[in-house]
Amino acid sequence: MSNINISNLSFRYPDSSDNIFNNLNLDLDSSWKLGLVGRNGRGKTTFLNLLRGNLRGTGKIQAKLEFNYFPLTVKNQEQLTLYALQEQVSFEQWELERELNLMKVDPELIWQPFNSLSGGEQTKILLALSFINKNGFPLIDEPTNHLDEDSRIQVIAYLQQHSNGYIVVSHDRAFLNQVTNHILAIENTEIHLYQGNFASYEDTKTKRDKFNQDKNEKLQGQIRSLNESRKRVKGYSLQSENNKKASAHKNEMHANINKGFFGHKAAKIMKRSKNLERRM
């Protein structure tokens, strides 16, 4: 068990003036089964590439782990699967067979050309490859794309029983709900960590959004009320300003005294109006 420590990580692409991430701070346990969620284009793949070292931002990512990315792009797909994979990743045959047995996938598939395998078979073999290194940490990007229902169940059972932690990206909510115990949610330029599976995250987020909506509506009501008060007070201020003019009291013996009185009153009301503006 190890930690992935991310401190003050910021990143933006060279052709953009806006940060994808801004001062991220995360401390992740490598035994956690993390689901990475967020709207399209908000940085899920970027975050995985930052962890892999394919992109560089400011700040630090510290981990005594090797990040294993799924799906690996197999270069020589006409070769036997075992040899095609060993050309790109260092591992022993028995290690891949061990993972395939855990997934209840026939290990004999590795003796077929990679391009002769179905999309689901390729997915399962490449996923098994991601878990070969016991000091590795798999970064799994959309693993259910080519899986039928039976294969999907196989993969879910495999991930549930595996002791290794990982980060998985998927648009399949039901899948995420079964294979995660923590959620990383991309929200604006930040990533927030939630304990629990995807259903727990959704419940927490729904309650938080409802709280923020109610708070916003309350604030909008207060702003409307303050605005009405400000307009009313501003009217009083203008009236007092007019009243302080000696010409408005030319028939009074103490016009100069009244002018000072009304000036003081106008200043107090104007101050109150400014306070209302600041509160708004």
Rank of each mutant, 00 (worst) to 15 (best):
A255E: 04
K210W: 02
N243E: 12
D150R: 12
I6P: 09
K268P: 02
A84L: 01
L34G: 03
A267P: 01
N115F: 00
N256D: 03
P107V: 06
I110E: 04
P143I: 08
Q178G: 01
G120M: 07
T81H: 10
W94D: 04
N256P: 00
D172C: 04
N251K: 14
A267H: 11
L176G: 00
I156A: 00
K265Q: 08
H182D: 00
V169L: 07
L80S: 10
M270T: 12
G263A: 14
M270I: 06
N251I: 03
S229Q: 15
E66L: 00
S240G: 05
I183L: 01
Q178L: 07
I153H: 00
E149C: 09
W32A: 09
S116C: 08
K205R: 13
N5C: 08
Q213P: 01
T206S: 03
N177G: 03
G260L: 13
N212L: 15
Q178Y: 10
N68Q: 13
E121H: 11
K210S: 06
S130A: 14
S10M: 08
I223Y: 13
H146V: 00
W111K: 11
I110V: 13
G43K: 11
I191S: 06
N258A: 07
Q77L: 04
S130Y: 12
P71H: 10
H249T: 15
F70N: 11
S247P: 02
Q220G: 00
N23A: 05
R56N: 08
S237N: 05
T73Q: 15
E97L: 05
A255Y: 07
R98K: 15
N3L: 13
N49W: 07
H182L: 01
T144F: 10
Q161F: 03
G165N: 13
N145E: 12
N212H: 09
N181S: 09
G260I: 14
L139T: 04
L85C: 04
K265A: 02
N181A: 09
N133F: 07
N5E: 11
L50M: 05
I6W: 09
F91D: 07
L102S: 02
Y194G: 02
T45I: 10
I4Y: 10
S225D: 12
T81K: 12
K244I: 03
N212V: 02
T73H: 12
G43H: 10
L147A: 06
W32I: 04
Q239K: 15
A255Q: 14
N54A: 00
E87Y: 08
R232Q: 13
K250D: 05
N68A: 03
L24M: 08
Q79I: 06
Q154C: 04
G53W: 08
I183H: 03
N227L: 15
E92W: 09
A157D: 14
R232G: 03
D106P: 08
N54D: 09
L176H: 05
R279H: 11
K274R: 10
A248D: 03
D29Y: 10
N256Q: 11
Y69F: 15
D15F: 06
S240I: 08
E92F: 06
Q195I: 02
S2C: 07
N19V: 00
L184M: 05
S30H: 06
K234A: 08
N181Q: 10
V37P: 03
R224T: 06
I6C: 07
S90V: 01
I153S: 05
